[in-house]
Design a protein around this nucleic acid. Structure first.
Length: 483
RNA sequence: GGCGACAUAGCCAAGUGGUAAGGCAGAGGUCUGCAAAACCUUUAUCCCCAGUUCAACCCUGGGUGUCGCCUCCA
């Protein structure tokens, strides 16, 4: 089955045809580490994590490369403000990036190239562009000559005239064309710099991605991703640089861009100041809730962020989590033979799996795919209810569990959480003391219930809820789970 | 000003030329302590106008509204 992807370059969905059979090269624009990642930053990385998981599920051998722009104006400014070195800042926030993304279960890329470690490669790229007539030197700066590249504007769907008309930047008359952009910036006092044929300086913003992506993925590769704010000028310039260097067109086969996370319908961004860092959000919501919130919506759509939305995501997720608990519970029962309708149910579950995979194959439609998880959850619950005291059909249960886990592992949720602890089971784990305490309170509450002291019973239950312990009274006894 | 995207139930959100997935909230029910949690059932004709078609929410044209890019930004 082919996978369809929406390609920004052609503005339509296309069948994914890998350059090399069974392989997929992915380059995702990473962060400029001068602050803790905010929720908007997290979206592309969660999105690409799901894409990667799915491609691997479909049998592709994926190479995932994601850069850190660790030499940059904002980093230098922050460092100067704090009176520390630029690399102190970038290292600090790169650590923060890893910490946050690990929590969100974003699997690490295979390679995380940094600008500072690729200066010679970048210099070589710039030199090649000069040699090819695509760039020129002015006072130690090197600029890209946009008029020398015939495809300039292809990705963003603009032409040079339009861009000039709307240009909001002061025109630097040393440049041949107002849209020419810097490949290399001559050193200024107090800034980090490196040697180059044009004097000391540092790379411009766009050149790093051309250099590092091609270094690790080749002159032409499959996927390039990032937020849609990068389409212009960043990705447009990247194409101009890479193709200007190699003469190969197209540089990247599929350009995928995610929509923004908004706050009150406005883009969440550092410059608008309306951002929430992931670290702050995780004080109120679990990483899994945040991840689920992100993948519940198709990656290209805008996604409005609010407490209400997150709470909804939390409840939705709880429904799926509960279904998994039901599956585990049923699995513990001795299985019987197939009941009259279980053969049909098996087929329905397999159908849901197919629907899920087809949704994912259609431009990674996680929103639709997840809806099939809910349908599966409903089937699981209904099956349990109808089963009453009968033994479950082992084969059916096996199919349900496998399909559910498979879906979870692609979306990256409910992968390995603690399961509900049954009152009647012996508990042994490293947090045994906490469990014993919770159990003690549960016993007290049961005692209160026996004595019809419901006020006390409810208070105990609500107090437990405050520390994240949710009780569930079931025919099999009291169960509890912890967030 | 140039370019582009979007507009589906109270809220969020998929989707197909042939009368609309899923989630949250609401309503009803099961269970229960006339509790909580959980589960089941249930809730729309798709911004406006015109056109194409046997048939349009999905196609075309126009309008209105919202958002984004053109400056750093995921």
């Amino acid at each position: 089955m082919t996978i369809k992807v929406y390609n920004t370059l052609t503005k339509r969905k296309e069948d994914f045809k890998p350059i090399k059979e069974g392989e997929a090269g992915i380059y995702v624009c990473g962060v400029t580490p001068y602050n803790h990642p905010h929720v908007g930053n997290a979206r592309p990385f969660v999105t690409w994590d799901v894409i990667r998981r799915f491609l691997e599920h479909e049998g592709y051998n994926v190479t995932h490369v994601q850069n850190f722009t660790d030499v940059d104006d904002k980093i230098i400014n922050t460092a100067n403000q704090e009176g520390v070195q630029w690399y102190d800042i970038s290292n600090r926030y790169i650590d923060s990036y890893y910490e946050v993304m690990d929590k969100l279960h974003v699997r690490r890329a295979h390679i995380y190239p940094r600008v500072s470690e690729h200066i010679p490669d970048i210099v070589a790229t710039v030199q090649k562009l000069i040699d090819n007539g695509h760039a020129y030197v002015v006072d130690g700066d090197v600029y890209y000559k946009v008029q020398s590249f015939k495809y300039y504007g292809e990705l963003s769907g603009r032409n040079l005239e339009d861009m000039q008309a709307g240009a909001r930047v002061d025109v630097d008359d040393r440049k041949a064309h107002p849209m020419d952009f810097a490949l290399w910036k001559a050193a200024k006092p107090g800034e980090p710099s490196w040697d180059s044929p044009w004097g000391k300086g540092r790379p411009g913003w766009h050149i790093e991605c051309s250099t590092m992506s091609m270094k690790y993925l080749g002159e032409t590769f499959d996927f390039h991703g990032g937020g849609s704010d990068l389409i212009f000028p960043h990705h447009e310039n990247e194409i101009a640089q890479s193709e200007g260097c190699t003469g190969k067109h197209p540089f990247v086969h599929y350009w995928l861009h995610n929509g923004f996370i908004t706050v009150n319908e406005e883009k969440m961004s550092k410059s608008l100041g309306n951002f929430f860092t992931v670290i702050d959000i995780l004080k109120k919501f679990s990483p899994e809730t945040l991840r689920f919130f992100i993948v519940e919506t198709h990656y290209r759509s805008p996604l409005d962020f609010s407490d209400t939305r997150l709470k909804e995501a939390e409840k939705s997720l709880a429904r799926l989590r509960n279904a998994r608990e039901v599956l585990m519970e049923l699995s513990k029962k001795i299985s019987g033979g197939p009941l009259q309708n279980s053969l049909q149910l098996r087929a329905e579950v397999i159908k849901l799996r197919d629907d899920f995979m087809n949704a994912m194959r259609d431009d990674f439609n996680t929103a639709l795919a997840i809806s099939y998880m809910f349908e599966l959850a409903k089937k699981v619950n209904t099956y349990k209810n109808e089963l009453k005291d009968d033994k479950p059909d082992g084969k059916l249960l096996d199919i349900m569990s496998k399909v559910f886990s498979e879906m979870c592992s692609i979306i990256g949720i409910l992968e390995n959480e603690k399961q509900m602890v049954n009152n009647n089971e012996k508990k042994e784990s490293d947090d045994g003391r906490e469990q014993a305490l919770v159990q003690m309170i549960i016993d007290m509450r049961q005692e209160a219930r026996k004595n019809k002291n419901f006020a006390l019973a409810d208070k105990l239950r609500d107090d437990l809820a405050k520390i994240g312990v949710v009780l569930q009274d079931t025919p099999d006894g009291v169960k509890w789970s912890k967030e």
